[in-house]
Amino acid sequence: MFEARLPQGQILKKLIEAVRELVTDANFECKPSGLSLQAMDSSHVSLVSLLMRADGFDPYQCDRNRTLGINLRTLASVLKCSSNDDIITIRAEDDGDSAILIFESPSSDRLSEFDLKLVDIDNEQLVIPDTQYDAVVRMPSAEFQRIVRDMQILGDSVTIACSKDGVKFSANGEIGSGSVRLKQSSAVDSEDDAVTVDLQQAVSLTFALRYLSLFSKAAPLSPTVTLSFSKDVPLLVEFRIADMGHLRFYLAPKIDE
């Protein structure tokens, strides 16, 4: 049997809200070490990679590896039936064709249970190599969300340039052009408010804003986001999930014809 109880159930709610517009169906890979998911959007330009380690659940039981194919739109609707402070348990019987979701109120006086039919998903998996990135930018996730939204006024692409001075986002379209430049923070009250650039070499890449906008829906998961860049390599956008894992998005850069 597979059973994973998540005391902070709202983490799962935020996760599914963050990916449901990008990915329709996904295979949750359940292993003794934890739960993971890898899925591409329908145009195969971006990829979602989720990891939730077993030790982030209480308790976590997985006797054998299981793949749970789930329609994320359905899962999102079911999760809307839970309260933000509910404890959420995901369960799958060994011979079952469904995943069971249990929502438990903090005082345990309300218990709801939903049985979700599993779906067969044939999804192509990609091997993501370990990469030494040219530049790693860390910033508040709300700032990332705001910049992506602002740049969308101008066009459908954004060029992101990292240098020792900071990071510059620029876009241009029919109505005009604009940019936002963030300097590395010198002194901040909280580390979560800082902008840092860890630079091996200056790099500039162009990306479709539509996908960055979808990635930025994960902002409620974490106060900070890291963006990792290398020349001619997909962008990595990472949100940490408390102390238990991460939600990563990869996006292929646009390249000159």
Binding site: M40, S43, V45, L47, Q125, V127, V233, P234, A252
Partner: peptide, 14 residues
Amino acid sequence: GMKQPVLSHFFRPS
């Protein structure tokens, strides 16, 4: 102009 390659242009299938 610029074109949008798919991810498999960069990452190989497993």
